[in-house]
Protein backbone atom coordinates (compact mmCIF):
# COMPACT_ATOMS: atom_id res chain seq x y z
CA UNK A 1 0.00 0.00 0.00
CA UNK A 2 1.14 3.46 -0.72
CA UNK A 3 2.38 5.76 1.94
CA UNK A 4 0.10 8.75 2.25
CA UNK A 5 1.99 11.98 2.29
CA UNK A 6 1.43 14.35 5.12
CA UNK A 7 2.27 17.87 4.20
CA UNK A 8 2.23 18.88 7.82
CA UNK A 9 5.99 18.60 8.30
CA UNK A 10 7.94 21.63 7.17
CA UNK A 11 8.51 21.48 3.38
CA UNK A 12 12.13 21.23 2.34
CA UNK A 13 11.84 23.38 -0.78
CA UNK A 14 9.28 26.03 -1.57
CA UNK A 15 8.60 28.28 -4.49
CA UNK A 16 6.55 31.40 -3.91
CA UNK A 17 5.06 32.95 -7.00
CA UNK A 18 8.18 32.55 -9.08
CA UNK A 19 8.20 33.71 -12.68
CA UNK A 20 11.06 33.36 -15.08
CA UNK A 21 11.69 34.37 -18.69
CA UNK A 22 14.74 33.46 -20.73
CA UNK A 23 16.80 36.14 -22.42
CA UNK A 24 14.98 35.57 -25.73
CA UNK A 25 11.66 36.39 -24.06
CA UNK A 26 10.32 32.84 -23.64
CA UNK A 27 8.33 32.79 -20.44
CA UNK A 28 9.27 29.43 -18.94
CA UNK A 29 7.72 29.77 -15.47
CA UNK A 30 4.54 31.65 -14.69
CA UNK A 31 3.87 32.48 -11.03
CA UNK A 32 4.60 29.04 -9.66
CA UNK A 33 3.95 28.39 -5.98
CA UNK A 34 4.59 25.01 -4.47
CA UNK A 35 5.98 23.09 -1.51
CA UNK A 36 8.07 19.96 -1.84
CA UNK A 37 7.36 17.43 0.93
CA UNK A 38 10.44 16.54 2.96
CA UNK A 39 11.85 13.03 2.73
CA UNK A 40 9.50 11.93 -0.06
CA UNK A 41 9.75 11.18 -3.75
CA UNK A 42 8.11 13.93 -5.73
CA UNK A 43 7.50 13.82 -9.47
CA UNK A 44 6.98 16.69 -11.87
CA UNK A 45 4.90 15.40 -14.71
CA UNK A 46 4.50 17.39 -17.88
CA UNK A 47 5.16 17.48 -21.62
CA UNK A 48 8.40 18.70 -23.18
CA UNK A 49 8.83 22.42 -22.81
CA UNK A 50 6.56 22.59 -19.76
CA UNK A 51 9.29 24.20 -17.68
CA UNK A 52 10.49 21.27 -15.57
CA UNK A 53 14.19 21.79 -16.19
CA UNK A 54 13.87 25.54 -15.73
CA UNK A 55 12.13 25.00 -12.39
CA UNK A 56 14.84 22.60 -11.22
CA UNK A 57 17.54 25.12 -12.08
CA UNK A 58 15.79 27.48 -9.68
CA UNK A 59 15.90 24.93 -6.88
CA UNK A 60 19.65 25.15 -6.56
CA UNK A 61 20.13 28.74 -7.53
CA UNK A 62 21.56 28.32 -11.02
CA UNK A 63 18.74 30.51 -12.26
CA UNK A 64 17.34 33.42 -10.31
CA UNK A 65 13.59 34.08 -10.63
CA UNK A 66 12.57 37.37 -12.22
CA UNK A 67 9.86 37.64 -9.61
CA UNK A 68 9.01 35.66 -6.47
CA UNK A 69 11.31 33.68 -4.24
CA UNK A 70 12.63 30.22 -3.57
CA UNK A 71 12.98 28.90 -0.01
CA UNK A 72 15.15 26.06 1.17
CA UNK A 73 14.40 24.58 4.59
CA UNK A 74 12.17 27.51 5.47
CA UNK A 75 14.75 30.15 4.60
CA UNK A 76 14.69 32.37 1.54
CA UNK A 77 17.49 31.61 -0.91
CA UNK A 78 20.02 34.43 -1.20
CA UNK A 79 22.10 34.78 -4.30
CA UNK A 80 25.49 35.59 -2.81
CA UNK A 81 28.51 33.31 -3.10
CA UNK A 82 28.40 31.53 0.27
CA UNK A 83 24.63 31.06 0.37
CA UNK A 84 24.65 29.60 -3.12
CA UNK A 85 27.46 27.19 -2.27
CA UNK A 86 25.55 26.10 0.80
CA UNK A 87 22.36 25.62 -1.21
CA UNK A 88 24.17 23.58 -3.90
CA UNK A 89 25.74 21.40 -1.25
CA UNK A 90 22.25 20.49 -0.04
CA UNK A 91 20.40 20.39 -3.34
CA UNK A 92 22.09 18.29 -6.01
CA UNK A 93 20.92 18.06 -9.62
CA UNK A 94 21.54 15.17 -11.98
CA UNK A 95 21.13 16.70 -15.42
CA UNK A 96 19.20 15.04 -18.19
CA UNK A 97 22.10 14.55 -20.56
CA UNK A 98 25.04 13.00 -18.69
CA UNK A 99 27.21 13.94 -21.67
CA UNK A 100 27.16 17.56 -20.55
CA UNK A 101 27.96 16.74 -16.96
CA UNK A 102 31.00 14.49 -17.25
CA UNK A 103 34.27 16.26 -17.91
CA UNK A 104 36.98 14.21 -16.28
CA UNK A 105 38.78 11.38 -17.99
CA UNK A 106 38.28 8.71 -15.36
CA UNK A 107 35.18 7.71 -13.44
CA UNK A 108 36.53 7.96 -9.90
CA UNK A 109 38.12 11.30 -10.61
CA UNK A 110 34.92 12.63 -12.07
CA UNK A 111 33.03 11.65 -8.93
CA UNK A 112 35.65 13.26 -6.69
CA UNK A 113 35.00 16.72 -8.16
CA UNK A 114 31.99 17.55 -5.96
CA UNK A 115 33.37 16.34 -2.61
CA UNK A 116 36.72 18.06 -3.26
CA UNK A 117 34.84 21.30 -3.88
CA UNK A 118 33.10 20.86 -0.53
CA UNK A 119 36.56 21.14 1.00
CA UNK A 120 36.60 17.66 2.54
CA UNK A 121 39.92 16.08 3.51
CA UNK A 122 41.38 13.56 1.06
CA UNK A 123 40.49 10.39 2.98
CA UNK A 124 36.90 11.56 3.33
CA UNK A 125 36.72 12.27 -0.39
CA UNK A 126 37.98 8.74 -1.18
CA UNK A 127 35.42 7.30 1.18
CA UNK A 128 32.63 9.26 -0.48
CA UNK A 129 33.79 8.35 -3.99
CA UNK A 130 33.95 4.66 -3.16
CA UNK A 131 30.59 4.73 -1.42
CA UNK A 132 28.91 6.60 -4.27
CA UNK A 133 30.35 4.16 -6.80
CA UNK A 134 29.07 1.21 -4.75
CA UNK A 135 25.60 2.73 -4.40
CA UNK A 136 25.34 3.47 -8.10
CA UNK A 137 26.72 0.03 -8.95
CA UNK A 138 29.65 1.28 -11.01
CA UNK A 139 32.61 0.17 -8.91
CA UNK A 140 33.89 -1.96 -11.79
CA UNK A 141 34.02 1.09 -14.06
CA UNK A 142 36.20 3.12 -11.69
CA UNK A 143 39.29 3.47 -13.90
CA UNK A 144 37.48 3.77 -17.21
CA UNK A 145 37.67 7.02 -19.14
CA UNK A 146 34.20 8.59 -19.08
CA UNK A 147 34.05 8.97 -22.86
CA UNK A 148 34.20 5.22 -23.44
CA UNK A 149 31.12 4.46 -21.35
CA UNK A 150 27.70 3.55 -22.70
CA UNK A 151 24.84 5.97 -22.24
CA UNK A 152 23.35 4.06 -19.31
CA UNK A 153 26.73 3.86 -17.61
CA UNK A 154 27.28 7.59 -18.09
CA UNK A 155 23.94 8.22 -16.47
CA UNK A 156 24.96 6.18 -13.44
CA UNK A 157 28.24 8.06 -13.16
CA UNK A 158 26.29 11.32 -13.31
CA UNK A 159 24.11 10.09 -10.45
CA UNK A 160 27.15 8.97 -8.44
CA UNK A 161 28.62 12.45 -9.02
CA UNK A 162 25.80 13.93 -7.02
CA UNK A 163 25.48 11.10 -4.47
CA UNK A 164 29.10 11.71 -3.47
CA UNK A 165 28.12 15.21 -2.34
CA UNK A 166 25.52 13.69 0.01
CA UNK A 167 22.81 16.26 -0.70
CA UNK A 168 19.61 16.49 1.35
CA UNK A 169 17.64 16.82 -1.85
CA UNK A 170 18.46 14.83 -4.98
CA UNK A 171 16.92 16.23 -8.14
CA UNK A 172 16.99 14.12 -11.27
CA UNK A 173 15.91 15.61 -14.57
CA UNK A 174 14.25 12.92 -16.72
CA UNK A 175 16.04 10.04 -14.97
CA UNK A 176 14.83 7.39 -17.39
CA UNK A 177 15.00 9.25 -20.68
CA UNK A 178 16.73 7.11 -23.34
CA UNK A 179 17.37 4.28 -20.89
CA UNK A 180 16.28 0.73 -21.60
CA UNK A 181 13.59 -0.78 -19.39
CA UNK A 182 16.02 -2.62 -17.14
CA UNK A 183 18.31 0.37 -16.65
CA UNK A 184 15.32 2.61 -15.98
CA UNK A 185 13.97 0.25 -13.32
CA UNK A 186 17.41 -0.01 -11.72
CA UNK A 187 17.70 3.75 -11.59
CA UNK A 188 14.32 4.14 -9.92
CA UNK A 189 15.15 1.37 -7.46
CA UNK A 190 18.36 3.19 -6.62
CA UNK A 191 16.34 6.31 -5.79
CA UNK A 192 13.98 4.24 -3.68
CA UNK A 193 16.90 2.79 -1.76
CA UNK A 194 18.55 6.16 -1.16
CA UNK A 195 15.24 7.60 -0.10
CA UNK A 196 14.53 4.76 2.34
CA UNK A 197 17.96 4.37 3.88
CA UNK A 198 19.03 7.99 4.20
CA UNK A 199 15.76 9.92 4.02
CA UNK A 200 17.01 12.03 1.13
CA UNK A 201 14.21 13.92 -0.60
CA UNK A 202 13.96 12.84 -4.24
CA UNK A 203 12.58 15.07 -6.96
CA UNK A 204 12.33 13.90 -10.54
CA UNK A 205 10.75 15.05 -13.75
CA UNK A 206 9.16 12.86 -16.36
CA UNK A 207 6.55 12.78 -19.08
CA UNK A 208 5.88 9.11 -18.42
CA UNK A 209 2.61 8.65 -16.51
CA UNK A 210 3.35 5.02 -15.61
CA UNK A 211 6.69 5.98 -14.09
CA UNK A 212 5.20 8.81 -12.05
CA UNK A 213 2.28 6.66 -10.92
CA UNK A 214 4.43 3.79 -9.70
CA UNK A 215 7.37 5.63 -8.17
CA UNK A 216 6.22 8.97 -6.81
CA UNK A 217 4.72 9.72 -3.41
CA UNK A 218 3.52 13.09 -4.58
CA UNK A 219 2.95 14.53 -8.04
CA UNK A 220 2.86 17.99 -9.58
CA UNK A 221 1.35 18.37 -13.02
CA UNK A 222 3.13 21.11 -14.88
CA UNK A 223 2.18 22.64 -18.21
CA UNK A 224 3.14 25.87 -19.98
CA UNK A 225 5.11 27.03 -16.98
CA UNK A 226 2.21 26.59 -14.56
CA UNK A 227 1.39 23.99 -11.95
CA UNK A 228 -2.07 22.78 -12.96
CA UNK A 229 -2.58 20.19 -10.23
CA UNK A 230 -0.85 18.47 -7.35
CA UNK A 231 -1.59 15.53 -5.12
CA UNK A 232 -0.90 11.90 -4.34
CA UNK A 233 -0.88 9.65 -7.43
CA UNK A 234 -4.29 8.12 -6.64
CA UNK A 235 -5.92 11.53 -6.61
CA UNK A 236 -4.25 12.66 -9.79
CA UNK A 237 -4.75 9.54 -11.88
CA UNK A 238 -8.30 8.64 -10.88
CA UNK A 239 -9.45 12.11 -11.82
CA UNK A 240 -10.49 11.83 -15.48
CA UNK A 241 -11.33 15.48 -15.90
CA UNK A 242 -7.93 16.55 -14.65
CA UNK A 243 -6.11 14.11 -16.91
CA UNK A 244 -8.04 15.36 -19.91
CA UNK A 245 -7.16 18.94 -19.08
CA UNK A 246 -3.48 18.01 -18.78
CA UNK A 247 -3.65 15.94 -21.98
CA UNK A 248 -2.27 12.93 -20.16
CA UNK A 249 -3.08 9.28 -20.63
CA UNK A 250 -4.07 7.20 -17.69
CA UNK A 251 -1.40 4.80 -16.40
CA UNK A 252 -2.09 1.30 -17.73
CA UNK A 253 -2.26 0.00 -14.15
CA UNK A 254 -5.15 2.31 -13.38
CA UNK A 255 -7.00 1.33 -16.56
CA UNK A 256 -6.66 -2.38 -15.90
CA UNK A 257 -7.48 -2.06 -12.22
CA UNK A 258 -10.70 -0.13 -12.89
CA UNK A 259 -11.76 -2.64 -15.51
CA UNK A 260 -11.06 -5.60 -13.22
CA UNK A 261 -12.86 -3.92 -10.34
CA UNK A 262 -15.92 -3.32 -12.49
CA UNK A 263 -15.96 -6.99 -13.32
CA UNK A 264 -15.44 -7.88 -9.69
CA UNK A 265 -12.17 -9.67 -10.35
CA UNK A 266 -10.03 -7.93 -7.75
CA UNK A 267 -10.41 -8.24 -4.03
CA UNK A 268 -9.13 -4.99 -2.65
CA UNK A 269 -10.49 -1.48 -2.74
CA UNK A 270 -7.02 -0.02 -2.57
CA UNK A 271 -5.66 0.87 -5.99
CA UNK A 272 -2.39 -0.98 -6.66
CA UNK A 273 0.71 1.09 -7.31
CA UNK A 274 2.80 -1.59 -9.00
CA UNK A 275 2.20 -4.51 -11.32
CA UNK A 276 3.12 -6.84 -8.45
CA UNK A 277 0.43 -5.40 -6.20
CA UNK A 278 -2.18 -5.75 -8.93
CA UNK A 279 -1.23 -9.40 -9.54
CA UNK A 280 -1.47 -10.11 -5.83
CA UNK A 281 -4.93 -8.59 -5.67
CA UNK A 282 -6.05 -10.78 -8.58
CA UNK A 283 -4.61 -13.89 -6.96
CA UNK A 284 -6.26 -13.08 -3.62
CA UNK A 285 -9.61 -12.84 -5.34
CA UNK A 286 -8.97 -16.19 -7.00
CA UNK A 287 -8.32 -17.79 -3.62
CA UNK A 288 -11.53 -16.31 -2.22
CA UNK A 289 -13.53 -17.62 -5.16
CA UNK A 290 -12.18 -21.16 -4.93
CA UNK A 291 -12.77 -21.21 -1.17
CA UNK A 292 -16.44 -20.30 -1.56
Amino acid sequence: MRWYVQLKSKPILEAREISFSYADGTQALDKISLSIPRGKKTAFLGPNGAGKTTLFLHFNGILKPNRGKVCYDGREVRYNHTSLLNLRKNVGIVFQDPETQLFSSSVWQEISFGPVNLGLPKEKVWERVNQAMAEAGITDLRDKPTHFLSYGQKKRVAIADILAMKPKVLICDEPTAWLDVKCAAQTMELFDLINHTTGVTIIFSTHDVDLAYSWADYIFLIKNGKIIAEGIPEHIFYNQRLLAEAELDRPWLVDIYEELKRKGWVASNVPPSTKQELLEQIREKNVMVTND
Partner: peptide, 19 residues
Protein backbone atom coordinates in the same frame (compact mmCIF):
# COMPACT_ATOMS: atom_id res chain seq x y z
CA UNK B 1 25.80 23.25 -20.23
CA UNK B 2 29.06 21.97 -18.81
CA UNK B 3 29.53 25.26 -17.00
CA UNK B 4 26.03 24.95 -15.52
CA UNK B 5 26.64 21.41 -14.34
CA UNK B 6 29.97 22.41 -12.80
CA UNK B 7 28.24 25.28 -11.01
CA UNK B 8 25.66 22.85 -9.67
CA UNK B 9 28.51 20.94 -8.07
CA UNK B 10 29.92 23.96 -6.24
CA UNK B 11 32.46 24.96 -8.90
CA UNK B 12 34.41 27.96 -7.66
CA UNK B 13 36.69 28.69 -10.56
CA UNK B 14 39.07 25.77 -10.05
CA UNK B 15 38.65 22.25 -11.27
CA UNK B 16 39.82 20.28 -8.26
CA UNK B 17 39.77 16.52 -8.35
CA UNK B 18 41.43 13.71 -6.47
CA UNK B 19 44.62 12.16 -7.65
Amino acid sequence: MLFTTLLARCYQGNINVLE
